[in-house]
Every structure is written in C-alpha cells, then in structure tokens.
Amino acid sequence: MSGDSSPGPPAAADEVLASLSEAVPSAEAGHSVGDHVIRVPAEDLARLAGAARDHGFEMCSDITVVDYLGKRRVRFEVVVNLLSVRHNRRLRILVPVPEGDPEVPSLVPVYPGANFLEREAYDMFGIRFAGHPDLTRILMPDDWMGHPLRRDFEVGAVPVQFKASPRVT
C-alpha cells in the first residue's frame, strides 16, 4: 500500500536506511508518500529497533496497529514510528503480523516509552508483545471481552430513538 511513485526523501537519510538494512538483512527499506519505511518480519523487530537506536533514533514516538481484514493476506500490521531528535529524522517500521499467532517482541527493553503504547495496542487489537513487563488492558476495563479496534468488532452503536419507543411485537 505504499505510494512508490511519490518522490523519496533526501539521499542523506537513505544512507541510514542502507546501513540499517545491512545490520538486519531481512529488513526491506522503502518509501511511502514521502516518508521512510522499513518492513521487517516480526522476529527481527527488536534487533532492527536496537540498530535504529544505535543510529540515533532515540525516541519511539508511536506504536500502533492496522487491521487489514479482508484487504491483505496477513491481517495485522504493527506500525512503529521512531524519531531522531539529534538528526531531525523520522523512520517508520512496518511489521506484518498474522491473525493466528499475533505476537511480536516487545520494544520496552530498547525504548522504555513503548510501555503504554504496546499496552494500548494489546488492548485495542490483541497483539501480544513478548517480553513486555506488564501487558494488561490500559484503556478498557479489565473484564472487557474482545479487542474493540479490530475491524470485526462491532462499533456498538445503539439505535437512536427519535420519537416514541419502537413497538414490541
């Protein structure tokens, strides 16, 4: 789904991408609407994040998940947004995660700030982050059933009653 036709970012940043791809051979660098993205299999995510940290990406600004139910073969995609304050640069890591075994390694050892973000992703999508110190629900009540942001979870709208209540037949 990446817009490959769009112009890529400046070349200086591409060196970092190339260097990262070298460190983690399974990583595949590319562009999406002018941003840097790297696709990596789940098992190499922690290694890539560690390498990115060594390349100056000191902040994990966001972790989220997209549910491509019925649109792609691999249902989920974990999206990690990294930021380098020192080099003023961003990097996005995309990790495909299958529906059957939704598990990726936790980034908390690399980026402590991933804690809440991963808990939110777990709460909303049911993705397990292996090695997370406290993988519990964060936004929904503890006894909630299901993961609300999955596409097959109903919005849960109740019919709006504008006039008299509907007749029971």
């Binding site: 609300p148 709208a157 109740v158 709006v160």
Partner: peptide
C-alpha cells in the same frame, strides 16, 4: 445526555 456523536462501544449512551 445521549452519548452525543459517539454512538459506540465505549460510551454510556
């Protein structure tokens, strides 16, 4: 009063 524009799973309507 009614749940407003957020007619969804999270809010008490």
């Amino acid at each position: 009063s009614t749940g407003g524009m957020f007619n969804n799973y999270a809010l008490v309507q």
